[in-house]
Design a protein around this nucleic acid. Structure first.
Lengths: 367, 367
DNA sequence: CTGAAAGCGCTTACAG
DNA sequence: CTGAAAGCGCTTACAG
């Protein structure tokens, strides 16, 4: 008897099994048995190897044959067995999505974009966590790389800027695409937005509203975007001829709590701002809460703006003015870059920069 | 030359490749080559089959042999090749996590819990979306089941209550565990909390604070939890002898927007509530925003409570009183149930009910 | 309790 | 441009 195949036994009414007859085990339908490359080959009148070539988009197949095979594949709705492919080749069809913190809402957006694109390209996504603050992170990473034979890896901030981490992927010959990297930009393809220009755009929005006492809350310093956003803010302030004032710049870490703490420092500080630009939405929400506690009318007495256009931004009151960063699209683009690299030989596109957008909502107004 | 192995060519300095020498292709280190079951077998002095038995926890291996093999496995840090296992057996080590909407924050919590537990049990999680409102959902589902050979599936609300969907898994002989199902509870193992008791607890909290004009915002009717929470609310009200008042009950759909709409209907309605119990946190946040717009002091003039203890609940001001539902733990438990089923023969535990918790924060107070 | 043989469904490395 | 053979690393189905 062959494993996983169908066994047909004489069915007997419930409870009256003949002693010698094996129990009827419920198995999937015959119709459910997956087709193999051989079925397609037979049907198309070619060898399995030729079917393989067509499936993998390899060259050296006559157009007529290619078409014929493709037609049979479509008719039969044949789907190659991923496990067999992965076993026999050096690479799997898995794409690793590497996070420092997979629990943040940013990670969720990235994941969804990656999943959808991966599905449409016949890839699968596996989520991996890398905790650079653990002493054994390298060993753990190598373990999972050996087992997974990843066809590609997507590195997200902040771990995308760890040179030692990238080196591990290079050693394992796993193609890498980074999202929003801050250094070694020539080392791997990447997907990004122009954080600096975006932050400048936001600051210009505040300046255009008439604000001059604009405070800035920096993000987590381990994220390179933190620095770029700060530079963009400075660009706009410098261009407007507004003097830098250290009393209006506070260090945050991208968390809600740090937004509250930073805002309280600013609101009770030596110089009261008329606008606060937080480096991300979560901190901006913290600022909003701090302002409410302090009974400061937003936006009438204080404009508050963020960065990201997280879901949160619309669930605040007033809703947050922010920069829309297309996280899902960026992740999808990263998957496409990886797929291109393995699909066509050298069809590799290089890096991609996606557009950002200033979203003006109710949390900012003229002063 | 063997596929995926190392090729060593004479290295030449950059840019001076001898014409006849093949390009040096960068390949993984020898040290990186994954160990196979044969390596372990040789080292332990047994057959590969015996190693396989030990790895899979099968019976019929002498304790001494089992230990010896286990020791070698540990020493060598051997990890079986998932693809090979999946190819040769009927089942893979993949667990499918099925969502109606993988983008919601609930899905994120569930995913994280499942991922972590899966990783510790040597499983992998694949996320799948089922859109019951698409006419081809069944075909799409079958396609992915055929390709994946899932070792198990976790069904989340609301699709966990679709009998046709469960039937498809049964036909494919894929073990299913449901999270918070509302019907056919004997059909599959499941993980749940006692939504009804939890909602009752919350309503009792409001009643204990002295509230009597308590409004209730129902959730999305396609989720069975919606009904259970409503029943729990009624239980508490009935027990307290508070008359039901249709004017204080509004239909929502679990979204932030529906919370705003419902709250506006209540606040401008025929009978003003002194407390609003929203069936989830996202709606409660909508209620909070509506109250701010209407200049109603929360919680002094109006207590607002939710359900879920989503991240949002702590980012509101005032922070939301809510019911903590351990979504990640529930997902982790579901993974364990599936793993148990395939590990030991018949070691299958049955369903699990996890505890909920009333979290009192600043959005509710005595009236 | 243990092992030798065959096979899972593909791809690789050749040969023509 | 196309195909026959061997192999990927496991598990299944036997046999002892």
């Amino acid at each position: 008897m062959i494993a996983g195949r169908i066994r047909l036994h004489k069915m007997t009414p419930c409870g009256t099994l003949d002693p010698g007859v094996p129990l009827l085990v419920f198995r999937p339908d015959v119709s459910m048995k997956a087709l193999t490359i051989k079925d397609v080959a037979r049907q198309a009148g070619v060898s399995p190897k030729t079917v393989s070539r067509v499936i993998n988009g390899e060259a050296h197949v006559r157009p007529a044959v290619r078409e014929a095979v493709a037609r049979v594949v479509a008719e039969l709705n044949y789907r190659p067995n991923t496990f067999a492919r992965s076993l026999s080749s050096t690479r799997s069809f898995l794409i690793g999505l590497f996070f420092d913190d997979p629990a943040c809402s940013y990670a969720n957006d990235v994941l969804l974009g990656a999943l959808e694109r991966a599905r449409s390209l016949g890839r699968h996504v596996v989520i991996e966590t890398v905790s650079l603050d653990r002493s054994d992170w390298q060993a753990r990473l190598e373990d999972s790389l050996v087992g997974l034979k990843l066809g590609g890896a997507i590195l997200t901030p902040p771990i995308c800027d760890c040179a030692d981490l990238i080196a591990i992927f290079e050693r394992h010959a796993v193609p890498v695409v980074r999202i929003a990297p801050g250094n070694d930009v020539d080392r791997t393809p990447y997907v990004s937005i122009d954080d600096r220009a975006a932050a400048r755009t936001m600051a210009e929005h505040l300046i255009a509203l008439g604000h001059r006492d604009i405070a800035f809350i920096k993000g987590n310093p381990t994220h390179s975007a933190t620095h770029r956003r700060w530079l963009g803010f400075r660009d706009a302030m410098d261009a407007a001829g507004i003097e830098p004032d250290d009393r209006l710049v506070v260090q945050g870490d991208f968390t809600f709590r740090s937004g509250i703490v930073a805002a309280e420092a600013l609101l009770h500080g030596p110089r009261a701002p008329d606008a606060i630009f937080a480096s991300n939405d979560e901190m901006a929400l913290g600022v909003l809460v701090a302002a409410m506690r302090a009974q400061i009318a937003v936006p009438q007495k204080l404009s508050i703006v963020g960065f990201d256009d997280a879901q949160l931004a619309r669930m605040a009151w007033p809703q947050l003015t922010t920069i829309r960063q297309p996280n899902s699209d960026m992740a999808a683009a990263a998957v496409s870059l990886l797929a291109d690299r393995s699909d066509g030989p050298e069809s590799a596109r290089s890096s991609i920069e996606l557009p950002y957008e200033l979203i003006v909502r109710a949390s900012s107004c003229g002063s």
